[in-house]
Amino acid sequence: MSQTIHEAQEIATAMAASLPQYPDTIILIPAFNEENNIGFVLDAIHREVPGIPVVVIDDGSGDKTATTAKAHGASVITMPYNSGYGVALQTGFIYALQHDYRLVIQMDGDRQHDPKYIKTLIQTIRKEEADVVIGSRFLGVGNYQSSFPRRLGINIFGRLASWITGQKVSDPTSGFQAIRGNAIKFMASDFYPPDYPDADLIIMLHRFGFKIREVPVLMHPNPDNKSMHRGHKTIYYVFKMFLSIFATILRKKPEL
């Protein structure tokens, strides 16, 4: 009798050892013309959190982003044409939902996001039992410099999101996040704003009742110094964000 209990314990220990450290977890990286950076990012991820599958969503790049990503061990989903950051990212969420992943890490492929902090995101989401954890560059780690209009935008929409959600949102534009459970379903749904997922997304997540937390992360300045928001698009972005936030709070409490 005691023999069998002992055996069962042994089997349990062996099973625990063979279980992956991060089960049902996937990393999504939307990438557009990142052949110079994607390899570096993927290698760093494999060093930091080996064993987590990585999916690069190649958003119709004209360069060798897809081949490079594949050579560095990622799965690659190629969009048939350039469809924008949000659409590419959502494709990853649909993929994650279809394959029953329970925890999604989203990050950029341009070396801005430091893969060292993937563990921090995962630990925070587990410890706080949150649905969404946002990696913020403005919570003390590092010293992130960006242009004045960009800082102003982040500040205004951060304050607006903080005011509406009743909790501090210091970096609403951050694309370095961990999302789990039903929040993945939300990200794959039609509620998701696909052109600039930003402060309005955070407010929507809050309205759905998801628990959002922020965690300080290190972000490096973008080596190519390109941003999603440039030129006349900035004006459209500001307009769209105000409209989207306003429409979101006037909508009836939605259900998934």
Partner: peptide
């Protein structure tokens, strides 16, 4: 536009 977006996403996943 929304329909094309969905189609694009699912096409990309199916191709993958």
């Amino acid at each position: 536009t929304n329909q094309v977006r969905r189609l694009t996403q699912h096409t990309a996943i199916l191709y993958h």
